[in-house]
Simulated scan of single mutants.
Amino acid sequence: MGLRERKKQLTRQGILDAAERLFDEQGFDGTTVVQIADAANVSVKTLFTYFDSKEDLVFGGEGATRDALVAAVRERPAGTSALDAVRGFVDAMVDDYDRVHGLEGFHRTIGDSPALQARVLVTFDRFETALAEVLAAEAGASAVDPASRLAAAQLVLLLRILTTQEVRDLVARHPLSKQQEILRTWVGRAADALAEGLATHPAREPGDIRIQSDTPSP
C-alpha cells in the first residue's frame, strides 16, 4: 500500500474514532457533523468524501464485518456446516473482550433513533444478500434461489439477534465479568434451535463445490 492510501486510511479511521467518541459522550442526535469534523481535524467536505451520511459513521466497520462473515462460510473446512461456520464467527466476536464493549457502545449509540434503527436493517439485508450468493453458488443454484436466501436470512439472524433489546437486557442484568459467558451460552442455544431448520444446508463434503448456475431453480 502506498503512502497516499495509508494517509487516506488514517484519515478515515480518525473520522470514525472521533465520531464514536462523540456519539458515546453526546448521543447520536446530540452530535453534529461539524463537531465530528473538528474533532478529526478535517473539513466537513473532507468528511463527506469518506462517508455518505452521518448514519454511515456508526456503521464504519460494516464492510469488514460482512466480508469476514462471508469468508467464514465460503472458506469453512470440509465437514463443517454453514451454521457451524457462522456460529464460530459469532463466538469469536463474543470472545473478543473489546468487541463485547464495542457492541454495548453500538447499542447505546443506536438507542431509540429511528434513522439508525432503519440503517441496521439495511446492514443485515446486505449481509443476507452476500451469504445467499455463497450458498447458492455451493448448491449450483441461481442467485435468486429462495432456499439459499431463506437459509442466509436464518444464518444472519444468529448475528442480528445480538443487537435486539431482549439480548441487551439479558446481558445488562449480569456483571461485566459474566457477560461474555452469558452471550456465548445464548448464541449456542440459538444455534441449536436453528440447526433443524437449516438441515437442508448440511456440512460440505470434500470437493463438493459447484459452479453457480444461470438457470433459476424450479
Rank of each mutant, 00 (worst) to 15 (best):
E25M: 02
A118S: 14
L83M: 09
P114Q: 14
V33G: 09
A71T: 13
A85Y: 02
P146D: 14
D214E: 11
T65M: 14
V58Q: 15
V94G: 04
G88K: 07
F106G: 08
G63C: 02
K7M: 03
T215L: 15
P218A: 13
A141Y: 01
F51I: 07
R76N: 11
L176E: 15
V156D: 08
A130S: 12
E62Q: 12
A64M: 14
G2I: 00
G30A: 08
D112K: 09
S142V: 00
D96C: 04
G102F: 06
A37T: 08
G188S: 07
L159F: 12
I211Y: 05
L176K: 14
E104Q: 12
D29Q: 13
A92Y: 12
L194T: 11
T11H: 00
A19N: 03
D192N: 09
A115W: 07
A40T: 08
F127T: 01
A118N: 11
L135A: 05
S81H: 07
A151V: 03
D29R: 14
I209A: 08
A203P: 00
A130M: 04
R149V: 04
F51V: 11
R4C: 00
V122I: 11
V144N: 10
R189P: 00
E104V: 02
T185M: 10
G30C: 06
R149F: 11
A64S: 14
L170M: 14
E20S: 11
I161P: 00
L170F: 06
V156N: 10
E20I: 01
A193N: 10
K7Q: 05
D192G: 06
E133P: 00
G111W: 03
G188D: 15
V34N: 15
A141K: 03
D192C: 03
E181Q: 13
P202A: 10
A203T: 04
Q180C: 00
L158Y: 05
D214G: 06
